[in-house]
Amino acid sequence: MATEQDHVTKGETDVDAERGYFGITFASRTKWNLIRLVTVVVYVLMLLPLLVIVVNSFNPSRLGNFPPESLSLRWYTELFADELMLRALWNSLQVGVAAAFGAGLIGTLTAMGFVRKNFRMQDALVIVLLSPLLVPPIIVGVAATIFFSQIGIGRSLMWLIVMHTLLGLPYAFLIIRSQLYLFDETLEEAAQTLGADRVTTFREVTLPLISPSIITAMVIVFVISFGEFTATQFWVKRTTTTVPVVIFSMLRTSISPKIDALATVMLVVTIAIPLAVLGIRRYAMPN
């Protein structure tokens, strides 16, 4: 019989690590298998429906029988001929990128203030800053719409950018702040004694060193902005509509595989862009 040590070092899973304990071996194993089963079921539930969308988008049949009898790009051709959809895609990209930059910039400045300075009501102000996570988006949507209409500002892409920046700000703040906690402030002090003013110090020292977290934050904000619907539905007009809003209104009228194609495009954008950015980040900043 192998020793307990062997199991601990060799153990591939918890189960293996426990194989040596008589009596409970079988029970542990069953439990672990149960955990595995639940995990598999959850993954199937999470991923299979998405897979169906992707496969269906290549199904030329209007009825979308599954599995498809043949594959074609018919719906993509229709999709890319539809001006409204292209417009929505373009709007979504613009808003997402702009909100990412907005929340990245504001999140950085804000996180720096909270980490570096001591001021009154700091704890309460953190909650203020995080409140966009707590207020249900339906209320954010209604409140902003009423607010802008009362002060007489019409719907525009700018409106979307400003509001999506707000929705992404708590994420950006938290992500950047957690890296700033690890940042060695004496580096900034060193730069200052060497003659760098505050702006230069930020540019030369702080920014390069916290940029990994800023990039991560911007990616997350882009993803949030790109997929946001509940609040955004109140904020768009025909020319500033975004992809989720278009999908929603298509679903209301008729279900066509064109939706699958659009959803697949959205899926690709929302996964490929972050992965590409994070990949480039890893490549460009090895540490």
Binding site: D184, T186, L187, E189, A190, A191, Q192, T193, L194, G195, A196, D197, T200, T201, E204, V205, P208, L209
Partner: peptide
């Protein structure tokens, strides 16, 4: 005067070299 307007060099205990 802010530090960057003085002309004084400081060697830090943990050096504070810019890692990047």
């Amino acid at each position: 005067l802010p530090p960057y307007r003085r002309n004084i060099g400081l060697v830090f205990q943990d050096y504070a070299l810019f890692p990047h």
